[in-house]
């Protein structure tokens, strides 16, 4: 076998040594996009709305509704819709601005740019995690136990995870729509669909069985939280695969889509609300 290297190949090898690893560049871009997302006025508005709802409900003494109403039950109104909108606008920014030549002449490919856009949603997820954590601490204390009319309910970690997961799902869905269309109205319509009935009434957040009578109401859905979480992860994975498929047709993306779809179907089938708490 010949090991001769042509001049261009030699130059390529030499220059490649100076290029930073791809994951470093991907995360650098994701960080920039993520910080832009958090600083976006619409996202901040959604965040403020979520905090406001939380404070209102907590102030009324309905602590579990505080968690659910402010951060969970209508996350679409509070944060989800805005996260979708901002992520969508960021993802189609280059086509909206007709800046394909700017971006196209850069070494970072569209595939990597899409991956960075998807990773940037982690910043919104972290912001929501922070909000949920603070809310849980304020309302339930370090032991995570809620008291209402002499009854107690210990929050489960999986219950707390659902809010941030929903935000991640909304954000990745935004990237998916933004990568496939340059139309601003698609972003606005998508956000409205998320925040308006009937979508907003879907049981995005559920609680496990055993919520005492005093806590429970028609507002709360009870289901297998574990399966519900798997369903949310599945939905987000489907959105990730759909966004990546715009510029990446490798089998691994199709596999990711199938895995996500399987998790979503299983999660929805097995994590559907079982109706009012039997207690």
């Amino acid at each position: 076998m010949s090991t001769t290297t042509t001049a261009p190949q030699r130059e390529l090898v030499i220059a490649s040594r100076t290029a930073p690893p791809l994951h470093t560049v991907r995360w650098a871009l994701a960080g920039t996009e993520g910080r832009r997302l958090l600083r976006h006025p619409l996202f901040m508005l959604g965040f403020a709305f979520a905090v406001f709802g939380l404070v209102l409900d907590a102030d009324s003494g309905e602590s579990i509704f505080g968690l659910a109403g402010g951060a969970y039950l209508f996350p679409g109104v509070g944060l989800g819709g805005m996260t979708f909108l901002v992520a969508c606008l960021a993802a189609n920014r280059e086509r909206r601005d007709s800046a394909q030549d700017f971006y196209g002449a850069a070494p970072l490919s569209e595939r990597v740019r899409t991956e960075a856009a998807l990773l940037s949603i982690a910043w919104a997820g972290l912001a929501c995690t922070g909000l949920t954590g603070v809310a849980a601490l304020v309302l339930a204390g370090f032991d995570g136990v809620l008291f209402f009319d002499g009854e107690r309910y210990a929050l489960r970690p999986l219950e707390l995870v659902q809010g941030p997961l929903y935000i991640v799902f909304a954000g990745t869905l935004g990237v998916l729509v933004g990568r496939w269309t340059r139309r601003t109205y698609a972003a606005v319509i998508g956000a409205l669909v998320l925040v308006l009935p009937p979508v907003v009434w879907l049981p995005w957040i559920v609680f496990g069985d055993g919520v005492p009578e005093g806590f429970s109401s028609d507002w709360l859905d009870h289901a297998s939280v574990g399966w519900h979480v798997i369903g949310l992860i599945g939905l987000a994975t489907v959105a990730v695969a759909g966004a990546r498929a715009r510029h990446d047709r490798r089998p691994r993306v199709a596999l990711l889509f199938l895995v996500g779809l399987g998790a979503a179907v299983a999660g929805i089938a097995l994590g559907l609300p079982t109706g009012p708490d039997p207690l």
Partner: peptide
């Protein structure tokens, strides 16, 4: 050149710098 008009001049050039793998 298609600019994102909400970027500042610095943010725009900085953004392109990341696309040029300056990490």
């Amino acid at each position: 050149p298609g600019f994102h008009r909400h970027f500042t001049a610095f943010e725009f050039v900085d953004y392109v710098a990341i696309l040029k793998e300056m990490t």
